[in-house]
Structure formats: C-alpha cells, structure tokens
Simulated assay, not measured.
Amino acid sequence: MLKVLFFGQIRERLATDQLSLDIAQLPTPLTVKALCEYLASKGEQWRELITTHSCLIAVNQTMANLDTPINGHDEVAIFPPVTGG
C-alpha cells in the first residue's frame, strides 16, 4: 500500500491527514506527477489544492520533483510551501 500524507492547510481543506492507496489501481509508471493527476481526478477540491497550489512533495522523507518514481510501499508527503525567518 502506498501511504500519502497531507499537512498544513492541505490537510485541513481536504479534511483528511492520509490515504492508503493500492498501487495496482494507480497509473504506471507511477511518478509524483501521475500521483498528483490521480489525486486531482478525485474532485474539484482535490484538483484545486493539488494543481493550483505550489505543493511541496517528499517521497520517503526526501524532497521530490514531478519525475520522481514512486514504488508500492513508499510514503509520499504533500504539504504547502513553508516560510520562515
């Protein structure tokens, strides 16, 4: 199972902190971009948050780009941009 975690305002707006997804039901080859497209297909609110915000994504606690491959037992974290001082 692929574990997808949501943080910050993304978690609040989606009203969920995580999803467990069966990798067999997802597009192949599975990349960060393909996962984002899949999540965006879940409805307008998902599409708005995943595609119109500058989400940061980490795979197994390492920052990822759209071409990063995802495997069946990975942990993917999606969170809003962070600012600090």
Rank of each mutant, 00 (worst) to 15 (best):
T16L: 14
C55W: 12
I57Q: 07
E75N: 07
L19G: 02
L66E: 14
G8C: 10
L5F: 13
K3I: 07
Q45D: 10
A15C: 12
D17I: 05
D17Y: 10
A64T: 00
L21Y: 03
T51Y: 10
T28P: 08
I57P: 04
Q45G: 11
A77M: 07
D74Y: 08
F79A: 07
I70P: 03
F79I: 05
P80S: 02
L49M: 09
L2I: 01
R11I: 04
T68V: 08
R13K: 13
V82I: 09
A24M: 11
L35R: 03
V76Y: 04
I50R: 02
I70K: 04
L30E: 04
I57Y: 06
P69E: 01
L66P: 12
P81M: 08
E44D: 13
N65V: 09
L30C: 05
Y38C: 06
F79M: 10
A34M: 13
Y38M: 07
A24H: 14
L14S: 01
Q25Y: 09
E75T: 13
A34G: 14
R47K: 13
A58G: 00
S54G: 14
L56G: 12
C55N: 15
I78V: 10
L2A: 00
P27R: 10
M1N: 04
T28Y: 11
V4T: 00
F6S: 00
T52W: 08
Q45L: 15
Q18N: 14
G43N: 06
G72E: 12
P29N: 08
I23N: 11
A64N: 00
L56D: 11
Y38N: 09
G85Y: 12
L30M: 09
L26C: 04
S41F: 01
L5K: 15
L66F: 15
T68H: 07
A64H: 01
L56V: 15
G8E: 03
L19N: 02
G72I: 08
T16F: 04
G43R: 06
D17R: 11
P80I: 03
G85P: 07
A40M: 08
I78Y: 05
E12A: 08
G85S: 10
T51K: 14
Q18P: 11
G8N: 09
I78A: 05
L19R: 03
L35W: 01
P81N: 06
P27A: 11
D74T: 05
P29C: 08
L39G: 01
L19D: 03
L5N: 13
W46Q: 02
L14A: 04
D67T: 09
P69R: 01
A58W: 00
T52N: 14
G84W: 05
K33F: 15
S54I: 14
D17C: 07
M1W: 02
K33H: 15
L66Y: 15
V32P: 00
A24N: 15
